[in-house]
């Protein structure tokens, strides 16, 4: 039973909170000989696998370290360009680590602000009036649940398709928001939530739900 993450979008559509709970870490490290049989591309400031999927290294994975040195963009810490290194036979055999890319905060903010108009479009598509908006978005690897309050704040959780009780979880997160974010004198509405008590209570709530289900909460 896995909960991947929680998102809160303010009524004006901005992402005000995000918590990655159990993002599965996918990493593969292997020694390669020259020539490299994986096609790499430099895009979005990352070196990404374009083609040549094998042994757990999938298309879209990011090159994160070379010979145990971390990769920044397309360079190592010492300034050497990685793609140049990989085209030079002298550097082989070479140890490369690939992992699934993590979303940056900006990417998350962008996605969340995309969700807001999506939600609005979905409501308009409804043949009946007074549509609730998107409540569940289902894919093969996850389900996204969304709860929109009367005030327009949206609470979303991304979880495994088999995880039950997520709609109740969202109502509990709403309560935590009403308590530990809104009653905090140092929190202003619509701003990113950075309240320690909110984060710790949310963490506890998610862990409890994952371990023993929603009825214990």
């Amino acid at each position: 039973m896995v909960i991947y993450g929680v998102y809160i979008v303010s009524k004006s559509g901005g992402l005000i909170f995000n918590h990655d709970h159990n993002v599965p870490k996918v990493e593969t490290e292997r020694t390669f000989t020259y020539p490299l049989d994986i096609q790499l591309n430099y895009e979005n400031k990352k070196i990404v696998v374009a083609f040549g999927q094998k042994d757990g290294i999938k298309v879209g994975h990011v090159l994160t370290s070379v010979n145990k040195n971390p990769v920044n963009g397309r360079e190592l810490d010492d300034g050497r360009d990685v793609l140049d290194m990989l085209s030079n036979a002298e550097n082989f055999p070479i140890l490369l680590k690939f992992s699934r890319s993590k979303m940056t905060t900006n990417e998350k903010i962008f996605l969340a602000s995309m969700f807001y108009p999506l939600f609005a479009i979905a409501s308009q598509l409804s043949p009946e009036p007074k549509c609730s908006g998107i409540e569940v978005l289902e894919a093969d690897t996850f389900r996204l649940y969304c709860y929109q309050t009367l005030t327009g704040v949206k609470f979303m959780v991304v979880a495994e398709p088999t995880q039950a009780g997520m709609d109740i979880l969202l109502k509990r997160v709403y309560e935590l928001y009403a308590d530990y974010a809104l009653k905090n004198p140092f929190y202003s509405l619509e701003m990113p939530i950075r309240c320690e008590l909110f984060e710790t209570h949310l963490q506890t709530l998610l862990e409890t739900v994952e371990k023993s289900g929603i009825s214990n909460v």
Binding site: T149, L150, T151, Y174, A178, L189
Partner: peptide
């Protein structure tokens, strides 16, 4: 008031 309403809604599950 703008905060109390969320508390009210979260706790009572009131509709519109």
């Amino acid at each position: 008031g703008i905060r109390l309403i969320e508390d009210f809604l979260a706790r009572t599950g009131s509709g519109r």
